[in-house]
Design a protein around this nucleic acid. Structure first.
Lengths: 200, 200, 200, 200
DNA sequence: AATGAATGAGACTTCATTCAT
DNA sequence: CATGAATGAAGTCTCATTCAT
């Protein structure tokens, strides 16, 4: 996975594209709309990206990278596994509530489906995150903070699925709720379910 | 929600559309592709549906209705709440593994976003299901089968999110895994987490 | 010009077509709209008319015939030429104010232009009427009621053009004015201009 | 009424559209025919006009503006009212005989009827011209050149209707007659009828 | 680096008409 | 006599992309 370095213009375009997609789905990301949104002409887009797919690809790279870095940071920081999970929940909910436009890109599995390359990229993003989460859970089970009566592979979809679902609902209700607050509540519940002390 | 009655031709079209969407996302549902897939000319589609949106709308109606009926049946059948949850998991995983084409329609939040009416329909479908699940959980908490140390509203997103995530992964891996088997494993875990006897 | 005899169904269709055209121009006369308006299916139209052109053709025939008969009646009745002109004005304004739907068909020169046959028919209708009016004017010039210092061929376009224009304006203002009243006023003026006693 | 400034390309398109309409009615103005006529592809039209309605709208604007300017010029020039009417007749007949393609656009009431905005524009064009003509007639009645025994409002439809009818007939006979010659004859007659000296 | 102009492909949809029943 | 189903042709318009300047 190449470590991309994006120019200012490219980042402008990525941001504009993100907003468009979040506002009206993939279908509203047209080169025309994008060029208007970013403030210069359509052909100019092609000076910064080879084609539309490359723009979408860059978006995924861009956000995926950030997420990966953050999770790595969390992994390497101090604290037991359970605490790390908590940090992931908090980070993500805070991040999304501050940048709602990103939500749809991260949740884009359905949208990119007609482009094998993009679809693959989304899949990688997700499985990447999943294996990181699993690593953390495993750590937690070893350090005694996370219950070990359930397999890691069984716990991770619960963690990830619940987060996704909460965010999805927030989006479908037009970002009205206080996502951070929901994150706090969600974590309380997850704590009850994941903490070692809750094993019977 | 009107109880629609679809003609044979309409159901043919709905099926063809479902397959197309599942194969390549909303973008691959064009009137041309649809007419080819169903075996007659493009204008003929318009004898059976007023326009493309109505086709998508019918798809949602069609699948939503079935799901609702099934859940109602489960609610009204015998058994405690925990058992009912189990039946939902089993039913859905079995249903999807037999009709993978439906997955994308049920998971279409992102896709329909540029059409307010469809978007609303998807949202209703989801919140409808969610409230049914919550009713079941509440029943389980009352009949003593489901732990009552966690609020119903906190348990439902765990249940629904986890299911969604599992199915989503199955789809992203091109339906290779045995979904039913995954359902069984998932249920074991859920049982550990939801059952009343597992409260500390 | 064949003396056509239209069946009841055909007349129903002609009436419906007339209303459609008057409501929204030729473009709103589609076989679909027509069949809906008349209350039976599209193919049924083809049992009564060979095709759409024949329907339009029948409309022109139908109204042209009536007009011709009426004018002939006026010609053959008693009274001098000036009086006959007056009767034409009164008849037409009264007729249109009672059947506004007909206006557009009679004024259809522009609409039928892409069909040579219909275009020719409209032209005949108009030139037919014009020559009748000229005959009346000539009669009036001979019987001393109409001024004879101006050629018949010069008077007729004034008569016909003014009538048309008045009706056109009435139509463009959505039939709001009292057409009969306008006819009376118009006639007063025409009388001043056409009557023999007004020659200098 | 905004003072529009059309690009060269836009004027090319307006001209081509005018010719098409005049040749075969509104129905023959298709984007395909227009693009062929103007020499580039259909989508290219949309770089110069937002949509087809805007093209028609521009045509009306374009011709209406010219007409208005000319009439204003005539109004402000020297000469009595009767002379001004004469100049209008001569100008129009000369103009149309040189640019027959314009006729249909100016006579388009019936054609544009299914588009409220265009219909309104045509109506304005006509009533605008009518009120200008009435202003001139009033001037003539005051300066003693035009008969004042008939109301201005009664004279204007005679003037306008007769002109329209003459031009209409010319068009229906496929522009065969010498329109300028007909204008001269028409004016002679109108002079007899409008001049003050012809009052009884 | 940027753009105005252009385009081939293809989207959805409507039209008049036909055919089997 | 009537219709449900179907269609070829054509309509308007949008898309991603290219090219000359």
């Amino acid at each position: 996975m190449e470590m991309a370095n994006y120019s200012n213009r490219q980042i402008e375009i990525i941001n504009a594209a993100t907003k468009l997609i979040n506002g009206g789905g993939i279908q509203s990301l047209t080169t025309k709309a994008l060029s208007e949104s970013v403030g210069f002409s359509e052909p100019a887009l092609y000076r910064h990206f080879k084609n539309k797919t490359e723009i979408l690809s860059a978006m995924l790279q861009f956000y995926g990278q950030r997420l990966k870095e953050k999770i790595n940071e969390i992994i390497n920081d101090e604290g037991n596994g359970l605490f790390k999970l908590e940090r992931i929940v908090k980070y993500q909910f805070d991040h999304f509530s501050r940048h709602p436009a990103i939500v749809m890109v991260i949740f884009a599995e359905a949208s990119f489906q007609n482009d094998a390359m993009l679809s693959e990229k989304v899949k990688n993003l997700m499985s990447n995150k999943k294996s990181k989460v699993e690593a953390i859970i495993k750590m937690g089970q070893l350090d005694g903070s996370i219950r070990n009566d359930i397999d890691t592979e069984q716990l991770s979809p619960i963690f990830m699925g619940t987060m996704r679902f909460t965010i999805l609902q927030w989006r479908m209700n037009h970002y009205k709720a206080d996502l951070n607050h929901q994150g706090v509540e969600l974590w309380e519940t997850m704590h009850s379910m994941f903490a070692a002390e809750n094993m019977k």
